[in-house]
Amino acid sequence: MFRYLIRRILWAVLLFIVITFVTFVIFFMGPNDPARAQCGGDQAQPACLKLVTEHYGLDKPIYVQYWRFFKRLVFQQNLGHSYATGQSINQAIGKAAPVTASLVFGGAILWMIMGLLIGVYSALKPRSLLDRTAMVFVLIGISAHPVWIGLIFEYLFGVKLKWTPIANYANFFGAPKDSGLPGGPWQWFYHMILPWCTFAILFAALYARMIRANVMETLNEDFVRTARAKGAPERRVLFSHVLRNALLPVVTMLGMDIGVALGGAIFTETVYQLPGLGRSLIIGVQSNDFATVQGVVVFATIAILLFNLIVDVLYAWIDPRIRLT
């Protein structure tokens, strides 16, 4: 178990270096001029350009720049400052990350609940009316784009029915004083309902279909027949023999999909104007703000690697066959 863990961690470190480096290179290759961006675009003064170039070491070879960035990141945990606004990127991410985390984790909980309920139920009653209805829902969920779903939801529940707000974020721990913004847990929840639903639909659909298939397959396993032959009631067969086996692959998928979901969060954040990482990333790209983009990517990379690590450990814990390998 210990060696397994060490190996996973070393692997995560290697991946981290590779991913940050690749991001670094890609942005470097592009037609960007960070110095010009910093100095106010087209009206930039040569003196300013020179100063900025020297300050950030923009004239140095790429590996030297990467090394500077890497050193600062590892030893000072500092992601630097935005080229566009000069704001500390650590601070910007500190503000944006909770928004994205609310969206992704709330969404993940929602999609797991939906996926489990729909998936297990349809597997137990295949070809029933509910199963067929659920599979139509799955098809819609997989085909429809989150931006489209978001707009429909906003119009229907926000504008027409006036059940929910149509945009903006409310801080869970209360809004800053005198800001006039809504805050507190209830407001947070109230503002997040639509984004969660929008965000969760795609994954709920995918998971419902996956869980349905897994449960149906596991129901045909020999050990399920053994459990029935022992005289176990159906409930017990389902919970202690079928589900744990059927959900093993789902745990792996969940770990990977949290990462994929971070990408999906960009759309939802855009539709509902949530000031999360996705929005930061888009603004960063639009304003040639390499430092911000790199900051968001690095942060997201760390988060995803961390989740995968947790999932690996969790997997070893729930599947005894993994432990020794």
């Binding site: 396993e221 020999d222 050990f223 027949r225 053994t226 459990a227 032959a229 022992k230 202690s240 023999h241 744990r244 086996n245 093993l248 729930i318 599947d319 005894p320 066959r321």
Partner: peptide, 17 residues
């Protein structure tokens, strides 16, 4: 009445002792 099955490799639940 109890029963033993053909394939012992798959007849036991892999995630329980």
């Amino acid at each position: 009445i109890s029963m033993i099955f053909q394939d012992p490799m798959t007849s036991l639940n892999p995630v329980q002792t």
